[in-house]
Structure formats: structure tokens, C-alpha cells
Simulated scan of single mutants.
Amino acid sequence: MTRQPDAPRHVVASGSEADTVVRRLARDGWVVREGFALTGSAWDVTTERLVLHGRITDRDTLQLAVLAAARGAGIVAVCDADSTMGRALIDDLSRLGTVQLGAGGPNAVPVEAGEAVAELVPEQRALLDRLAAGDTIAAAAAAEFLSLRTANRRIAEARALFGVRTTREAVLAYLRQRRTPD
């Protein structure tokens, strides 16, 4: 019996990012469908290689997306990861497995909770803490006595470690993983 690959779980900020992820998953053989409602009678849809996508606008849609993921469907959800609903979605999906924030690249490696935070150097942690507190990269660099170039390089390394494209996504991943108990 061959093991089915884990269903992809993506939370993206825009429809264009969702389109990028959906196209990539379709090329990889996933069956893509808009909306999060599963109408089939079978509980486990893992073998169908189904990916559902859409915008999370309310609690009901959020619950449908999480239920579909629990039943084995892949999810590509458009939602502001900074919002209360976005954080709830990411937390719920994280309980099922790895969640990729943003479109990422084809070579992006999703990081399991806690792994990336342990690999950060102290400079990266300090920069991410300051960015999470609202500092700009330039202000965080100055406060940590780093050149702007070094700060940008450390943050780029952190983005690669978390498997995300943007600094905002790296800060969110850092905050979420930092809270995760070992």
C-alpha cells in the first residue's frame, strides 16, 4: 500500500497568491475545487487528492475549511493571517499538520512547529522580536547595533528557514512557533 502525501495547507493573503498555489497543486496532480464544503458521503477524502480553495470571510467558512482539512482535503485559504480569524484558522490547521503561510516557492520546505525557532541565531530572534513589536527593519537594526545590510540578510535567512516569502510571514511564523510548547 502506498502512502498518500500529506494534504497541502496554505493560508495566503491575496487571491493572486491563491491562484499561484492552486495552479502549482493542479500541475502536481491535485484535483482543485472552489469552496470548502465537502458533499461526498465518505469521511476520509485523502485518496481523492482534493484541494479546496476560497476566501475565509466568516466563522462558518472557517469551520468548513478546518473540517475539510480534518477529512483529508488540501486547503488554500485566502485570509489575513494577522486578523483574529486568520490566527484562529492557522492555529486550527496547525493542529492537523504543517501550514504554509503565503504562496512560497516550489522548493519551499514547510517547517514543523518549533524546529525553525530552535535554529535561529540570537540576532535573528532579536530582529524578529523587534519587528513583531512594530519596529521597522532599519529601527530594529539600529537597536541591535547591526548594519541595515546585515539585518536584511539575517531576516532573509529567517524567511528561508520558515519557508515563507515575506518578512511579515516570517514574523508570524516566528511568533506562532515561539508560543508552541515543546
Rank of each mutant, 00 (worst) to 15 (best):
F162D: 09
G15R: 10
T150N: 12
D44R: 14
A73R: 08
L38S: 04
L67S: 15
A143F: 03
A70G: 15
V76I: 10
Q100T: 15
L161P: 05
R55S: 11
V22A: 06
A141G: 13
S94R: 00
A73I: 09
A13K: 07
V109N: 09
T61K: 05
R179W: 00
Q177T: 04
R33T: 05
R130D: 06
H53Y: 14
V171H: 03
V76T: 04
V21M: 01
F36D: 07
V32T: 15
V32D: 01
R176N: 08
A26Q: 13
W30T: 06
L101E: 04
L172G: 00
T39C: 07
S14M: 05
T136E: 07
V76L: 08
H53M: 08
Q4D: 11
S41M: 12
E123M: 02
F36W: 06
I155G: 01
F145V: 04
P106W: 11
L64P: 03
E17V: 00
R154K: 12
V117W: 06
T84Q: 13
T61D: 10
G104A: 10
V117S: 06
A173R: 14
V121E: 13
V45T: 13
V99K: 00
Q124G: 15
A173K: 10
A77Y: 13
A81Q: 10
T39P: 01
A81D: 13
T46W: 08
D58K: 08
D44H: 11
E169C: 03
E48Q: 14
Q63W: 08
D135M: 08
T20I: 05
H10C: 01
Q4K: 10
A77N: 11
A151H: 09
A70L: 13
A65I: 10
G97S: 02
Q177G: 14
L93E: 07
P122I: 06
T39D: 14
D6H: 08
A141K: 09
D19E: 14
R95K: 09
M1H: 13
E123L: 02
L96S: 03
I90L: 01
A132P: 01
I56F: 07
W30K: 02
R9V: 06
T136P: 00
S83I: 05
G74Q: 04
W43D: 10
G72M: 09
L93D: 08
T166G: 10
G102P: 06
S83W: 07
W43M: 11
L96D: 02
A156W: 06
G35K: 04
S16H: 12
Q124K: 00
R178I: 03
A116H: 08
R24F: 03
N107Y: 11
P122W: 07
I90S: 00
V31P: 02
A142V: 12
L146M: 15
E17W: 01
T167A: 02
R49V: 05
R24D: 00
R71Y: 10
E157L: 12
L89W: 03
A140G: 14
A69V: 06
A173S: 15
P8W: 02
G15T: 10
A70M: 11
A170N: 04
L175Y: 04
A132Y: 00
A156H: 10
A68D: 06
L148I: 14
H53R: 15
T98N: 08
L50Y: 06
A37D: 07
E144K: 01
M1Q: 13
L62C: 07
R49I: 00
T150Q: 12
E123F: 01
G54N: 11
S147D: 13
L96E: 00
Q177C: 03
R49K: 11
G29D: 04
R165D: 13
V109C: 06
R3K: 14
